[in-house]
């Protein structure tokens, strides 16, 4: 206790609160100095030492992302017939139905009757001539002016084929409350 008395600072008393004269804890002081040194090194490196800027770092990262993407031409381009054959696989049609409900139905309607986007069951086409490859192109790239989002990168290639097949399979299904025809008729 006498040691404690020595530590008390004379004359420091406020409403009964006294103060000890303990030194700054060593580990605390080292931490403080370490953060200050880190700050200097960091600022010097990134602001004066030629460290990469955020946009440079982004550029590098995006190049890596691009490099990882399989080149479009490298993948064998499937023909209309091959695609149509693939799209009639009942397993794939089931996947297509699922994708449609999750991603497409909010704009094209649960029965494909058209809502915000066009009716997909009639014989009228806005973009294309009735081929599955036409449909795939629209799904992939979207139609920015009309508000159709591009699905490339969000849906996988197989999912896009599946949903295209599903949509074509519903052609002529005559749902209730169809949206008025848009585009050109394709027989």
């Amino acid at each position: 206790m006498s040691q404690e008395q020595d530590l008390l600072i004379k004359g420091h008393e406020y409403d009964g609160i006294k103060e000890f004269d303990n030194p700054l804890p060593g580990w605390w002081l080292i931490t403080f100095y370490a953060t200050i040194i880190f700050a200097f090194i960091y600022v010097i490196h990134y602001e004066f030492g030629g460290g990469p800027t955020l946009s440079q770092e982004l550029e590098v990262a995006m190049k890596e992302v691009q490099a990882a993407k399989p080149a479009a031409s490298a993948a064998p381009q499937e023909s209309e017939e091959e695609l149509m054959k693939k799209a009639q696989d009942p397993k794939l049609l089931a996947i297509g139905a699922e994708v449609f409900t999750g991603k497409c139905a909010s704009c094209h309607g649960n029965e494909l009757q058209g809502l915000i986007g066009p009716n997909l069951t009639d014989k009228y086409w806005i973009h294309g001539k009735g081929k599955i490859t036409d449909m795939l192109t629209v799904i992939k790239a979207g139609v920015a002016d009309k508000g159709m989002p591009p699905w490339d990168g969000i849906l996988k290639q197989d999912e896009m084929i599946a949903v295209s097949g599903f949509i074509l399979s519903k052609k002529g299904s005559n749902p209730a409350n169809p949206k008025a025809p848009q585009g050109e008729p394709v027989e």
């Binding site: 008390l8 600072i9 420091h12 409403d15 009964g16 609160i17 006294k18 103060e19 000890f20 004269d21 303990n22 030194p23 700054l24 804890p25 605390w28 403080f32």
Partner: peptide
């Protein structure tokens, strides 16, 4: 204020108070 009052003990380090306040 309230910790030293509630436990009736002196504040641990006056020097630390000064340094950490200004920093």
């Amino acid at each position: 204020y309230f910790i030293p009052k509630a436990v009736n003990r002196p504040v641990y380090s006056y020097r630390l108070s000064i340094v950490h306040f200004w920093a």
